[in-house]
Amino acid sequence: MALLEIKNLHATVGNREILKGIDLSINPGEVHAIMGPNGSGKSTLAQVLSGRELYVVTAGQVIYDGQDLLELSPEDRARAGIFLAFQYPVEIPGVSNMYFLKAALNTVRKSRGLEELDAFDFLNLVKEKMKLMEMDQALLNRPVNTGFSGGEKKRNEIFQMAVLEPKLAILDETDSGLDIDALRTVAGGVNALRSPERSMIVVTHYQRLLNYIVPDFVHVLSEGRIVKSGGKELALQLEESGYAGMGIEDEEEAVGRV
């Protein structure tokens, strides 16, 4: 049975319809890349799946792990094993990374029927995961994402994912703003988390990330619809021809980015 089943999903922000009928099925352990030009709805899909209230679902259905995902609050989705790695991780001054992550992990553990971790066990777990992401432990005592470099923020996202061990990870343009070394580290972290029990949706504009995180399936999104699906070779094809070569208008190329 599919872990995630999206059927005819429509979503709007304000009066604008962004998603215009998405169909997608993801089985346990599969990695699906969602590619598409700016404004195609990639990030919206990621946010809708994690429950951002800014977006209103106007039609369609999302079944996750046998339940109606759209009925769940963002926190209940997280507790059910959905994780969104943010494109722009939010800075939260005044809340330490450590406190935040411990609160998050223990809530998630509780909902899975596991015991809450005490400070000692938590620290041991966290140290191990930090090594994976080549992160400085000093970051634990800093406020969440505050004063972090772009690379540190993205690493912190994957580090959180490593700690929370989701069933479905959604990576929203995790490659944006990363230099090649940081990209390798982040991708290495993601690959270490691949498992037959964990599915992933990797949202990206560029094929570059997919050299490191090799997907099982690639979907091309345009104007709120999936216009093409295929294997990993589709990404390479797209890299060569560009979105325009596939007859897809890329906002960035067409009008320039503001």
Binding site: P74, F86, I92, A104, T107, V108, S111, L164
Partner: peptide
Amino acid sequence: DAEALFYLQSRGIG
């Protein structure tokens, strides 16, 4: 901050 609120919720915090 609505963004910060969503960020925390997306990690399972009520």
